[in-house]
Computed example of a mutant assay.
Amino acid sequence: MDDDQAAPEHTRRPTIKDVADRAGVTKATVSKYLNRAHGYAMAASTRERIRAAIQELDFEPSPLARGLTRSATSTIGLVVADIRSQFYPDLVASIQAAAEAAGYTLVLGSSGDDPHRELDIVRSMAHRRVDGVVLVAVRSESDNIDYLRRRGIQIVLASRDLPELVADTVVVDSLAGGRAATRHLVSLGHRRLAHVAGEATVKPFADRRRGFELETAGLGAEVPVAVAQSSIEGGRAAALRLLDVGSPPTGIFFASDTMALGGLMACADLGLRVPDDVSIVGFDNVTVGQLPGIGLTTIDSDAVRVGELATELLLKRIPAPRDADPAPTLITRPAVLVERTSAARPRA
């Protein structure tokens, strides 16, 4: 048979046994190496031999196969409301970095702020046998939490909380943040104020609105509130409704920076200057708000630290027996005002 007619060489994916043979160790030792995120001790020389064997053989462990042998997959799910929001990049990046540093893979799902889709994503993650889930897209109802709990999957809430503490939760103090943002506008001399609020079913938005109402209760006049989706277009439309009137507000507090960016667009639509004609304060401290020409005054949501702490809490719970789970923990980060150029004293 000539070369052109020679049968192709048989190839197959390398297995744990191949890695063990190459490294001169047992399959159990290779398995411990692959599951090192769970605390298995191993000599540095043994670890290096296994690492070299994996690299030489181009071995890729199957997360599902590993999950079948130890009832875990070294995978964490993350559910956010809308990945297009300016708020999420820092939070997602911090959770991913913390997860990968501990040997976990992150699976991301974006619900589009749809509670039904959120539950579908949660179910899909459960079917993938994730070890735990960080929920950022939760609303007042907790069906998704109940669903995961029934399947023995650990949960942590990040940047959003529920009326009752049903799971480990890490948030910034939205009530205090709403008060600080509004108090800043009042301290600058603004008396005609308005608030662009998020949906009341999202507790942080409800808390920010409550903070605004507490700080404006003594102004002696009805203070308008426009409810909008937490998107640029939602903030833009709400701001247009508030500003396109006979006696518009001189200061507006937006429940998120994403909506505040829409507010800046609305001011441009109406030929209003920020902060000369309208002062704007947001909530989140997103990266784009720091850019020259925007200079958004805001409340820092501490997204990076919130993501890190949420991941740490989840990783502590994953190895624990389900019948020995401690009571849920609430970590509340302080709300810090970041002053930039979008808010100033009103014109006389």
Rank of each mutant, 00 (worst) to 15 (best):
D4I: 13
Q5C: 11
I16L: 11
A20L: 06
T29D: 09
T29Q: 08
N35W: 07
A43P: 01
A44L: 11
S45L: 10
A52G: 12
A53K: 00
Q55V: 10
L57R: 06
L64Y: 09
T69Q: 13
S71Q: 14
G77W: 01
V80S: 06
D82W: 02
F87G: 06
P89A: 11
D90N: 12
A97P: 00
A101I: 01
T105A: 15
L108K: 07
L108H: 10
D113T: 11
D113C: 10
R117V: 13
D120R: 13
R123E: 15
D131Y: 02
G132Q: 01
V133G: 06
L135T: 07
V136L: 08
A137K: 03
V138F: 01
R139W: 11
R139C: 08
S140T: 13
S142H: 13
D143S: 11
N144C: 11
N144H: 14
N144E: 14
D146V: 12
Y147K: 00
R150N: 13
G152E: 07
L162W: 04
G178M: 01
R179C: 07
A181D: 03
L185K: 00
V186P: 01
G189F: 05
L193I: 02
A194I: 03
G198Y: 03
F205E: 08
A206I: 01
D207Q: 12
R208K: 11
R209Q: 14
G211T: 07
L214R: 12
A217S: 15
P224H: 09
A226L: 04
V227R: 07
G235L: 01
R236C: 06
R241I: 09
T250Q: 02
A255E: 08
R273I: 05
D276N: 07
D277A: 03
V288E: 14
Q290S: 15
G293E: 05
I294G: 04
L296W: 06
D302A: 14
A303S: 14
E308Y: 04
A310G: 08
L313M: 12
R317L: 14
P321W: 10
A327T: 11
P328F: 02
R333Y: 08
P334G: 08
A343L: 03
A348W: 09
A348P: 15
